[in-house]
Design a protein around this nucleic acid. Structure first.
Lengths: 189, 189
DNA sequence: CGTTAGTTTGAGAGGACTCAAAGTCTGTGG
DNA sequence: CCACAGACTTTGAGTCCTCTCAAACTAACG
């Protein structure tokens, strides 16, 4: 039996043995190299990824610049969320920032489980609820915190990010230019 | 049979007659006067409101100022979302901006339906997904649009808001001061 | 070891903020 | 029906934070 964060999700929220077994059979494990893209902007996302090791990000283009909208660490999940849930071309690209080990579940399998298992529908609802509250925090950061405060918040919540991802990606995630982030980092050290 | 937006939600996503009937029996209708509060910050939210007529908002205090985080129009829904889904004291207050007619479902009833009806669980999941994408738009607005562009966006998407809600409430929703919003409005007219 | 990606530093401009004061609207009581 | 108090909105002046543009510096990789 594989011990991974996807399985853990089921264990946390359901005791349905059939779901658990079929779920584990449906998981695909992949290695993704640093810099490799698993979803390109405009493609339809067919997989939800759970990261066992490594670091990935989702991003999109705006005014010819890449904007990073989310980082996903070990134990977290990532997908082209618009595309995966609405079956439309994705606005987002997804790539690995480090060599990563991921488990994935396909859209088709997920849909099958959503239809067949009430408990799975609930799990997905709870995951989405969590994603919602993450976004609420992000709104608050962008609306009220100064660039210095945003830096301090990320340094506190995700300290490892600061030496795992390139400056420009972190800056766009935090809603500032990379020059500004560089200056702040200089002052704080 | 009541014709309302809550019922419509069920009809759109389920053909379960039992759910529909029990749902309609569980709905409570209320009038809420302009300025009246239905949830105070710190209380636990026990109802999800669907607005049939009127306009409501959710807000919270930050640095001794009220920040409006959402407006809910006819056909939309509102609740102390953190509190309602996580059973914690609400960060948000909710009040009516105009005299409003609302239908509500209580937390207990909703939970009962979530347990008993897979289709209801799905409906709630889809509603949350919609709320998620609304928030994504909000993040983008705050991160990339100038104050002028935010004004134009709201003027396009929710033109009625501009003469239904006080300036200060709209300004905080748009992430700017009321002085700034007032100046922008002056230029555009 | 050279090329490219990524980071730092500097100077200058501008948008939105704060603080302050005046003007306008709204609703309630006399 | 008018007058007044309180809430809301507008306008002004000055400041500051973050941005843009530019160039130099550093690190990573083949």
């Amino acid at each position: 039996m594989t011990n991974n964060s996807l399985t853990q999700l089921i264990l946390d929220h359901s005791d349905d043995q059939e779901l658990l077994e079929r779920f584990q059979k449906s998981i695909e494990t992949e290695h993704i190299n640093k810099g490799e893209t698993v979803l390109k902007e405009g493609e339809t996302s067919n997989k939800l990824y759970f990261i066992e090791q490594g670091l990935m990000r989702s991003f999109y283009m705006r005014d010819y610049k890449e904007v990073t909208c989310w980082f996903a660490f070990e134990g977290e999940h990532i997908t082209g969320i618009d595309s995966f849930f609405q079956r439309t071309p994705s606005k987002y690209g997804i790539e690995a920032i480090e060599d990563s080990l991921v488990n994935s579940i396909s859209y088709d399998v997920m849909n099958e489980f959503l239809d067949q298992f009430h408990s799975f529908e609930r799990i997905v609802r709870l995951v989405l609820t969590g994603a919602y509250f993450d976004l609420v925090d992000r709104v608050e950061m962008l609306q009220f915190l100064t660039t210095h405060e945003r830096y301090e918040k990320i340094a506190e919540l995700k300290p490892s990010l600061l030496h795992r991802a390139p400056l420009g990606q972190i800056a766009s995630y935090l809603g500032m230019t990379q020059e500004t982030l560089s200056r702040i980092r200089g002052i704080k050290n």
